[in-house]
Amino acid sequence: MTLPDLFPTTTVGSFPKPADLAQLRSRVQQGKAGVDELDALTREKTRELIAAQERVGLDLLVHGELERGDMVTYFAELIEGFELAGFVRSYGNRYYRKPVARRPLVARGPMTVETFRFAQGLTDRPVKAMLTGPYTIMDWSFNEAYPDRRGFALAVAEILHDEAVRLEAAGARFIQIDEPALSTRPEEIALGIEALGVVTRGLTARTITHICYGAIDEVYPEILELPVDQLDLEAKNNGFAVLDVLARGPVPKEVALGVVDVHSHRVESAEEVEAAILRAAEVIPPRQLFVDPDCGLKTRTEAEAWAKLEAMVEGVRRARLKLG
């Protein structure tokens, strides 16, 4: 199945974890349930999630990242040389085990290929393969193995490149490499570009990077040099200020624009979404514009997430009628 010509809809990656899955994960961590049981339930929920995305009318699907906790820790647990340090606070009474690179990193083998293959096998629509980017993995981990941040980031990038090649061989037509940390240190954007270039080197799949909650204006126009086909950008949360930045010059890449706020309980209306798309289409050539939420939906309840996506799809339908 191919994507529509105008405003393909997608999501950034994560979905809220169903309560029974979250409870089982907790029981597995406490040693009260087995990993096989968790894997089975995760697959069942992924199947439901793929079907739900089809029902709501999304064009480019995701597997939902139900098997992942923290987006960096997940990969660190699969790469030799990383260990998990003690608990560090994420917010309030929530903690995560921050990775630490103790020794030079070595891939243990495929990390995400089976999950992708399973999800893609459930639908005729394209499913994005999802990786966390090398700069973000480096920036959000402790480093005891490399003399500098560049060496650390490039080592991670080589491992992710091998994984991206495997994903492509497994049929991935879209590979997304999330780099939320990239826009938080404008002084290191060149390193981010270099590391991402290692990951996407030689790929023929369409490549995407998701960036959020940083100072996009401080990494413009360098952000346009990121070696991917598509920039996936948070926009709604900041009143679409990113459009003012992109309006400074030509937009040479596809842009997936966040039109619903994943940090707000309020469900946007279809009219709001439509207006946002029409506004964006004045800055980004319409046939380069994808539409999605600002970021992963795991911060919302399931009801809020689906209500936002329904409004988004309806807003896109209306915008397509106007501009199609």
Partner: peptide, 16 residues
């Protein structure tokens, strides 16, 4: 205080 937003360059959050 409102929704969670990343706190500067850290993998931690604050209620914006």
């Amino acid at each position: 205080p409102g929704g969670l937003v990343r706190f500067f360059t850290n993998n931690t959050y604050y209620r914006r």
